[in-house]
Design a protein around this nucleic acid. Structure first.
Lengths: 136, 136
DNA sequence: CTGGATCCATAATGATACTG
DNA sequence: CAGTATCATTATGGATCCAG
């Protein structure tokens, strides 16, 4: 059995318009991003987060990329940004319905990663070993 | 009803080891990438592809990133790379079982993007409109 | 004191030319 | 055809500065 056309099978839709394909690919390009996905995950677990919390929870991200990614997510309607006019400043981020939908969709990838991280680790070791063996 | 802990619920596993979490996040970081996901999709639809075919099918990618991404995918065990010692050279790429698993996992995100691209487009317009209204 | 903007150094990516 | 090498461009990180 072949897995060709897997996506088409699953969605059971009439052939997609090429122009739509382009839009969809653009969205995948924006959304298939390390920080976006990590932030979505964090915002799914703790549904409401301040900027500083996100900075701590999202290991390795710089303030700049955090701001930048959150802005892009807000622009795409994935999160809402609520500014409380208090001092010190307080800004809360929360997933929208749309963002939650993406979270659920991406959930499968987290499960895949958790189920297969050992396999991947082994693959990397094998690859490195083959590399070293090859260049002798 | 809250969606907090969505991932944990769905996987129904004992609490994950922090060290494992780090590995998993590293894998998500590697795999949640525009070109990787586009290539996975292409290799799912046409299960066996030559370098040139991938270059044409993967709109906007540079040769450099194509090579680089394919190498990383090979290293992680997502694709196999078969070199035929003929002239002109012929190299075929094909998803492994692991890569196919990722493809299936990511399928949900494609469906989400196809179902919601209009919503996202509207969100972007609204955002831009609000921006312009705000800075008057 | 938090959220975030700005500036500079560095790393990643793109474009093009070239090679086995 | 399937890359590699080189250089221009862009994205990101890190530190600092600023407004509320």
């Amino acid at each position: 059995m072949t897995d060709s056309g897997l996506r088409r099978e699953l969605q059971d839709l009439p052939r997609t318009d090429p122009a739509v394909d382009q839009l969809v690919e653009e969205i995948i390009g924006r959304v298939a991003d390390k920080w976006t996905m990590l932030l979505i995950e964090i915002l799914t677990e703790r549904e409401c987060c301040r900027f500083g919390e996100l900075a701590k929870a999202c290991t390795g991200i710089s303030q700049k990329m955090l701001t930048q990614t959150l802005r892009a997510m807000e622009r795409d309607g994935l999160v809402t940004r609520t500014v409380y006019p208090v001092v010190p400043p307080k800004v809360e981020y929360r997933l929208t319905e749309l963002g939650l939908g993406l979270s659920k969709a991406f959930c499968g990838v987290w499960l895949w990663a958790e189920a297969n991280f050992e396999t991947i680790d082994r693959a990397r070791q094998d690859y490195t070993a083959r590399q070293e063996a090859g260049q002798v």
